[in-house]
């Protein structure tokens, strides 16, 4: 039984009670992924599994046997920040930073969902083949990630710059 975390295979915990979040933080010493509410209400623990964003606090590690997990530690490549990380710095997309790893992973998963055409609560036309990532869509799609500092405007600006304008330019 093993899973891949940021490209490296790691063994799963022998105790099935261990959440994916606790495995990342306590067993693998990857503290980037944060424990906020530990009950699925805040989004701080968001990671990507096979490219899909999930909450690692509501996941048992053993559930993800054979899958590929990406955490915030896996985003920067070759010493270069991921473009979204750079945009968060540029736009003051954080204050204390606690929610930031979850925001980053969530936004990356969100961008893939938009590209795939997954509708959201504010999508006007369900039959549309493509969905434009405007600010209303972005805010709704990121509503599972809370920021108690209230940096949401900067967060929205950063994500918008990286994903909305890129999409528009394509």
């Amino acid at each position: 039984m093993s899973i891949t975390v940021n490209g490296l295979p790691v063994p799963l915990p022998s105790d099935p009670r261990v959440s994916l979040l606790d495995m990342l933080r306590e067993d693998l010493h990857l503290p980037g992924t944060k424990k906020g509410c530990n009950q699925g209400a805040c989004g701080a623990c968001t990671v990507l599994v096979d490219g899909q964003r999930i909450l690692s606090c509501l996941a048992l590690a053993v559930q993800y046997d054979g899958r590929a997990v990406m955490t915030v530690e896996g985003l920067a490549q070759g010493g270069e920040l991921h473009p979204l990380q750079a945009a968060f710095v540029e736009h003051d997309g954080f204050q204390c930073g606690y929610c930031t790893p979850g925001q980053l992973c969530s936004a990356i998963g969100m961008a893939a969902e938009v590209k795939r055409g997954v509708p959201s609560h504010v999508t006007g036309d369900l039959s549309a083949e493509t969905i434009a990532l405007d600010r209303e869509e972005l805010r709704e799609r990121m509503s599972g990630n809370l920021c108690r500092c209230g940096a949401h405007n900067g967060i929205v600006d950063a994500i918008f710059e990286v994903y909305a304008e890129t999409e528009a330019a394509e």
Partner: peptide
């Protein structure tokens, strides 16, 4: 997100995306 659900049963797509967060729905 299934095409047939969105077209023939939009109430179901709408109800699902009104619930929880995207992470939980995944």
């Amino acid at each position: 997100e299934h095409r047939a659900v969105r077209t023939h049963y939009p109430v179901l797509s709408r109800a699902i995306v009104a619930g929880a967060s995207a992470q939980i729905r995944n």
